[in-house]
Protein backbone atom coordinates (compact mmCIF):
# COMPACT_ATOMS: atom_id res chain seq x y z
CA UNK A 1 0.00 0.00 0.00
CA UNK A 2 1.42 3.37 -1.03
CA UNK A 3 1.31 6.58 0.97
CA UNK A 4 -1.02 8.27 -1.52
CA UNK A 5 -3.55 5.45 -0.93
CA UNK A 6 -3.64 6.02 2.82
CA UNK A 7 -3.13 9.79 2.80
CA UNK A 8 -6.89 10.59 2.42
CA UNK A 9 -7.59 8.42 5.50
CA UNK A 10 -4.79 10.15 7.40
CA UNK A 11 -6.14 13.56 6.40
CA UNK A 12 -9.65 12.53 7.39
CA UNK A 13 -8.37 11.28 10.75
CA UNK A 14 -6.45 14.51 11.31
CA UNK A 15 -9.47 16.68 10.52
CA UNK A 16 -11.67 14.60 12.79
CA UNK A 17 -9.18 15.02 15.61
CA UNK A 18 -9.21 18.84 15.35
CA UNK A 19 -11.56 19.23 18.38
CA UNK A 20 -9.30 17.08 20.57
CA UNK A 21 -6.15 18.77 19.26
CA UNK A 22 -7.60 22.24 19.94
CA UNK A 23 -8.42 21.34 23.55
CA UNK A 24 -4.99 19.66 23.90
CA UNK A 25 -3.22 22.78 22.57
CA UNK A 26 -5.14 25.07 24.93
CA UNK A 27 -4.07 22.81 27.79
CA UNK A 28 -0.43 23.52 26.90
CA UNK A 29 -1.00 27.22 26.15
CA UNK A 30 -1.49 27.76 29.89
CA UNK A 31 2.06 26.54 30.46
CA UNK A 32 3.78 29.14 28.30
CA UNK A 33 5.94 31.42 30.44
CA UNK A 34 4.61 34.74 29.09
CA UNK A 35 6.37 36.79 31.81
CA UNK A 36 3.27 38.94 32.30
CA UNK A 37 2.16 39.34 35.89
CA UNK A 38 -1.42 39.26 34.55
CA UNK A 39 -0.98 35.69 33.25
CA UNK A 40 1.05 34.56 36.24
CA UNK A 41 -1.57 35.68 38.75
CA UNK A 42 -4.55 34.59 36.70
CA UNK A 43 -3.79 31.51 34.70
CA UNK A 44 -6.67 30.94 32.28
CA UNK A 45 -7.82 27.40 31.46
CA UNK A 46 -9.02 28.08 27.90
CA UNK A 47 -9.66 24.35 27.52
CA UNK A 48 -13.10 24.83 29.13
CA UNK A 49 -14.18 27.23 26.35
CA UNK A 50 -12.96 24.97 23.56
CA UNK A 51 -14.62 21.95 25.24
CA UNK A 52 -17.91 23.86 25.49
CA UNK A 53 -17.77 24.93 21.83
CA UNK A 54 -16.85 21.53 20.45
CA UNK A 55 -19.38 19.69 22.62
CA UNK A 56 -22.07 21.87 21.05
CA UNK A 57 -20.71 21.84 17.48
CA UNK A 58 -19.40 18.25 17.16
CA UNK A 59 -19.88 16.13 20.31
CA UNK A 60 -19.34 12.96 18.25
CA UNK A 61 -15.68 13.97 17.78
CA UNK A 62 -15.06 14.42 21.51
CA UNK A 63 -16.03 11.11 23.12
CA UNK A 64 -15.97 10.74 26.93
CA UNK A 65 -12.65 8.86 26.71
CA UNK A 66 -10.96 11.91 25.17
CA UNK A 67 -12.38 14.18 27.89
CA UNK A 68 -11.04 11.75 30.50
CA UNK A 69 -7.58 11.81 28.89
CA UNK A 70 -7.60 15.63 28.75
CA UNK A 71 -8.61 15.82 32.42
CA UNK A 72 -5.98 13.32 33.48
CA UNK A 73 -3.29 15.15 31.50
CA UNK A 74 -4.37 18.42 33.05
CA UNK A 75 -4.08 16.87 36.53
CA UNK A 76 -0.61 15.55 35.83
CA UNK A 77 0.73 18.66 34.11
CA UNK A 78 -0.55 21.16 36.66
CA UNK A 79 0.13 20.44 40.30
CA UNK A 80 -3.49 20.01 41.33
CA UNK A 81 -4.44 16.94 43.40
CA UNK A 82 -4.88 13.94 41.10
CA UNK A 83 -8.40 13.47 39.77
CA UNK A 84 -9.70 17.01 40.37
CA UNK A 85 -9.59 18.16 36.75
CA UNK A 86 -10.63 14.74 35.44
CA UNK A 87 -13.70 14.83 37.69
CA UNK A 88 -14.57 18.44 36.80
CA UNK A 89 -14.00 17.88 33.05
CA UNK A 90 -16.26 14.79 33.12
CA UNK A 91 -18.93 16.73 35.03
CA UNK A 92 -18.67 19.58 32.52
CA UNK A 93 -19.02 17.05 29.69
CA UNK A 94 -22.13 15.53 31.30
CA UNK A 95 -23.76 18.93 31.82
CA UNK A 96 -23.04 20.30 28.33
CA UNK A 97 -23.80 17.01 26.54
CA UNK A 98 -27.17 16.54 28.26
CA UNK A 99 -28.20 20.19 27.70
CA UNK A 100 -26.91 20.32 24.09
CA UNK A 101 -30.34 19.88 22.48
CA UNK A 102 -31.58 23.01 24.28
CA UNK A 103 -28.52 25.01 23.21
CA UNK A 104 -28.32 24.23 19.50
CA UNK A 105 -29.52 26.99 17.22
CA UNK A 106 -29.44 29.72 19.85
CA UNK A 107 -27.67 33.05 19.45
CA UNK A 108 -24.05 33.66 20.35
CA UNK A 109 -25.05 35.83 23.33
CA UNK A 110 -27.27 33.08 24.71
CA UNK A 111 -24.40 30.57 24.47
CA UNK A 112 -22.02 33.01 26.13
CA UNK A 113 -24.43 33.45 29.04
CA UNK A 114 -24.96 29.70 29.28
CA UNK A 115 -21.19 29.14 29.41
CA UNK A 116 -21.01 31.63 32.29
CA UNK A 117 -23.87 29.88 34.12
CA UNK A 118 -22.17 26.49 33.72
CA UNK A 119 -18.64 27.56 34.56
CA UNK A 120 -19.23 29.56 37.78
CA UNK A 121 -20.60 26.67 39.91
CA UNK A 122 -18.01 24.36 38.35
CA UNK A 123 -15.16 26.61 39.48
CA UNK A 124 -16.69 26.85 42.95
CA UNK A 125 -16.89 23.06 43.05
CA UNK A 126 -13.25 22.80 41.94
CA UNK A 127 -12.21 25.28 44.62
CA UNK A 128 -14.18 23.31 47.22
CA UNK A 129 -12.64 19.99 46.16
CA UNK A 130 -9.07 21.34 46.20
CA UNK A 131 -9.69 22.93 49.62
CA UNK A 132 -11.13 19.65 50.91
CA UNK A 133 -8.28 17.52 49.57
CA UNK A 134 -5.57 19.92 50.80
CA UNK A 135 -7.26 20.32 54.17
CA UNK A 136 -7.24 24.13 54.07
CA UNK A 137 -9.26 26.87 52.39
CA UNK A 138 -7.53 27.92 49.18
CA UNK A 139 -7.48 31.65 48.34
CA UNK A 140 -10.69 32.41 46.49
CA UNK A 141 -9.66 35.76 44.94
CA UNK A 142 -7.54 34.37 42.11
CA UNK A 143 -10.21 31.75 41.40
CA UNK A 144 -12.92 34.43 41.04
CA UNK A 145 -10.66 36.58 38.83
CA UNK A 146 -9.79 33.54 36.73
CA UNK A 147 -13.45 32.62 36.30
CA UNK A 148 -14.60 36.09 35.16
CA UNK A 149 -11.62 36.58 32.85
CA UNK A 150 -12.30 33.21 31.29
CA UNK A 151 -15.87 34.28 30.62
CA UNK A 152 -14.49 37.50 29.09
CA UNK A 153 -12.23 35.54 26.77
CA UNK A 154 -15.10 33.32 25.56
CA UNK A 155 -15.82 35.26 22.30
CA UNK A 156 -12.20 34.94 21.05
CA UNK A 157 -11.90 31.20 21.62
CA UNK A 158 -15.47 30.56 20.41
CA UNK A 159 -14.73 32.53 17.23
CA UNK A 160 -11.56 30.47 16.68
CA UNK A 161 -13.41 27.17 17.19
CA UNK A 162 -16.30 28.18 14.91
CA UNK A 163 -13.80 29.23 12.21
CA UNK A 164 -12.17 25.79 12.42
CA UNK A 165 -15.59 24.16 12.31
CA UNK A 166 -16.75 26.14 9.25
CA UNK A 167 -13.47 25.58 7.41
CA UNK A 168 -12.92 21.86 8.02
CA UNK A 169 -15.67 20.08 9.91
CA UNK A 170 -18.97 21.50 8.66
CA UNK A 171 -19.41 18.99 5.84
CA UNK A 172 -17.62 15.98 7.37
CA UNK A 173 -19.76 13.22 8.81
Amino acid sequence: MKFRDISPYLMDGFIKSIPFLTCFSFLFLGLFPFRLSFFIELFLPFTYISLFCWLILRPDLLPPASIFVLGLLSDLIYMNPLGINTFVFMLFYLIVYTQRRFLIGHSFLFLWNTFAIFIIPLFILQWGLVSLLRGQFMPINSMIGQCFLLIGFYPFIAWFCSKLYNSYLDDIS
Binding site: P63, P64, A65, I67, P81, L82, G83, F87, M90, L94
Partner: peptide
Protein backbone atom coordinates in the same frame (compact mmCIF):
# COMPACT_ATOMS: atom_id res chain seq x y z
CA UNK B 1 -23.10 3.92 30.24
CA UNK B 2 -19.55 4.79 29.02
CA UNK B 3 -19.80 8.33 30.39
CA UNK B 4 -20.70 7.05 33.85
CA UNK B 5 -17.84 4.55 33.69
CA UNK B 6 -15.35 7.37 33.07
CA UNK B 7 -17.05 9.41 35.76
CA UNK B 8 -16.49 6.57 38.22
CA UNK B 9 -12.89 6.27 37.05
CA UNK B 10 -12.42 9.99 37.77
CA UNK B 11 -13.74 9.40 41.31
CA UNK B 12 -11.30 6.50 41.59
CA UNK B 13 -8.47 8.84 40.57
CA UNK B 14 -9.47 11.22 43.35
CA UNK B 15 -9.12 8.39 45.86
CA UNK B 16 -5.83 7.27 44.29
CA UNK B 17 -4.56 10.85 44.60
CA UNK B 18 -5.37 10.80 48.31
Amino acid sequence: FGVYLYFLLACGLLLLGL
